[in-house]
Design a protein around this nucleic acid. Structure first.
Lengths: 333, 333
DNA sequence: CTGTTAGCGCCTTCAG
DNA sequence: CTGAAGGCGCTAACAG
């Protein structure tokens, strides 16, 4: 079996306490220090984090629950959160909620059993009940991407409403009047973005006919179908806003397969600049979230909570989005 | 703090051993069983897996290392491996190699420190050196998707060479002679699939001009660029094989944006039926891997190794692929 | 079936 | 600065 500090004691003649102190960065006489180091090399000793965890009550592990691991958005989030955490010596335990609230609740219990020190989550549910067990055990939680009304949790997201609003404004300013939207009533983000969009339209006195308003779910399929439907209307919209990456991707595919040209026949505006943008023509105008920064903030928040367990009001970070120019929107008039 | 079995002892008057036995599914007198269960409910007791792990030397955690978490392939793998593992009470610790061999080697050490009971990995490296530490510690390893020459590890993958071969045959049988390929020299899978393809072409005495042979890397970008280049050739190929999901996606986009029509002007054959297929028109002919079954097998192998630590020769499972028909390949003549 | 007694590998007092 | 002793929460022999 693996070497323990007892083996080192045998080799060095020092006591367990001294060795432990060395391991934890305490002061040890130079000669003893050398003895220990030599022994560690000799025995290929490595600290048993499990045993350490039992006494310190720290596992150096964070749980991350994503709403759907098959979404590309989740992949990017996991990568960056994992990266930042690793730099701090933390591991990431990943759980997938499969867009299902019951599984999501299970995941929380599961991670709690694993004694994670904190949970970063992109929630499926629209209410916070399922996080109660974490609160009871004082396990820090950071919400990402989505949040709940009147929540008690730290949260990192963009101002989805403002993003939707600005996107609409962008199109309106360029002379568009018949604007359609592909959004979601299932995902919090899609719904908020829709509300911002609607607000801007209302302010300008622009009507949003029912058939321009494609509210469904944030999937490639839905983006694709919706765009097909929109293109098939007798009075086509002149511009369409897609409220997330998947719907953007689906919509672009539908247009490219159609007889219509973007931006000549129809203007498009998307969300979330993931891999797609390097590939798609015309270059899509889109609302871009600072994904990496969001992950950095989320990791910062969770570590702060872990290291300073004092009670403080929850921090809600609303990150700014960028409107990235492209040539998928044609100025009218 | 959280309740321990000592608290239960206090409430029930039973001994630690009895309670422990109950917790581990042993036989306990009905009345004692009830007492314990009542106490557990009362105290909200939950087993401390850390403490348990310290004595049993089992963490009930498996590490999974993916070559690139931003690839959609990885997302699907993680989902299914995670699902099957959860059913067995195991957690999944996910690491991302970012397509980088150094990070990959780090990941192995990291997981070993976390005392995972096994490692499932889609490797980046083409040689097994970096897995030596796991072998030394007798930590089971299962390779997925890719493997090494003369390896000592259990492995679940498809016969990539045969898949490439059959895909080529499919096109040749339908009268295609000028066939191009978009493959990879970086990824093991792409390279193997290319070799199978080449073999079929050679057997039929069909030439593969250099400009038809686009060997690069398995990304959307590369698939996109490559298809553009192929479409721009004075003597266009009549069919193109893309050797993975990302390149398939990129190639489809390039064709749809071009002046050419699939399958009238160019036939296409892809790999890996992920989300895309529900959306893309024309329905792409593709080589389909049994992803879910592969994950199930991988989990089976790792659990077998864990539960029967006897030495046995490595098992290499080669799963069959399906050629899914579509209408992206036009029969010539 | 139940209870007692030792540890698992490590950290943390407290004396020295 | 170092050593001895006790304990983190649980399981694994043994006895009874």
């Amino acid at each position: 079996m693996a070497a323990t500090i007892r083996d080192i004691r045998k080799q060095t003649g020092l006591s367990l306490a001294t060795i432990s102190k060395y391991l934890n960065g305490g002061n040890v006489l130079p000669e003893n220090r050398e003895k220990i180091e030599a022994s560690i090399r000799d025995l290929h000793y490595e600290v048993n984090e499990i045993a350490r965890g039992l006494v310190t009550n720290r596992t150096k592990t964070i749980g991350m629950i994503v709403y759907d691991i098959e979404s590309m958005f989740s992949g990017v989030l996991i990568r960056h959160v994992g990266d930042f955490l690793r730099k701090e010596g933390y591991a990431l335990l990943v759980c997938d909620s499969c867009n299902d609230e019951a599984i999501e609740a299970d995941n929380v219990r599961f991670l709690l059993n694993k004694k994670v020190e904190g949970i970063v989550i992109t929630p499926v549910s629209w209410k916070a009940d399922f996080l109660l067990p974490a609160q009871h055990k004082n396990v820090p939680v950071v919400l990402m991407d989505r949040s709940f009304a009147g929540t008690d949790f730290d949260c990192v997201k963009i101002d989805n409403r403002a993003a939707g609003y600005r996107a609409a404004q962008y199109l309106i300013k360029r002379g568009h009047r018949r604007i359609a939207i592909i959004a979601s009533s299932v995902e919090y983000t899609g719904w908020e973005r829709y509300k911002g969009f609607k607000e801007a339209m209302d302010e300008q006195g622009l009507s949003l006919p029912e058939e321009y308003c494609r509210i469904g779910v944030h999937t490639i399929e839905f983006g694709y179908e919706s765009m097909q439907k929109l293109l098939g209307l007798s009075e086509r919209p002149t511009a369409v806003l897609m409220t997330n990456y998947e719907t953007s991707l689906g919509a672009v595919m539908a247009v490219n397969e159609s007889e219509y040209d973007c931006p000549d026949d129809i203007s498009m505006m998307g969300f979330d600049d993931l891999i797609m943008s390097h590939v798609v023509k015309p270059k899509l105008c889109m609302v871009v979230q600072p994904m990496k920064e969001m992950c950095e903030k989320a990791v910062g928040l969770i570590l702060t909570q872990i290291n300073n367990p004092e009670d403080r009001p929850p921090i809600e970070l609303s990150m700014g989005t960028t409107l990235r120019d492209g040539n998928s929107v044609k100025p009218l008039q």
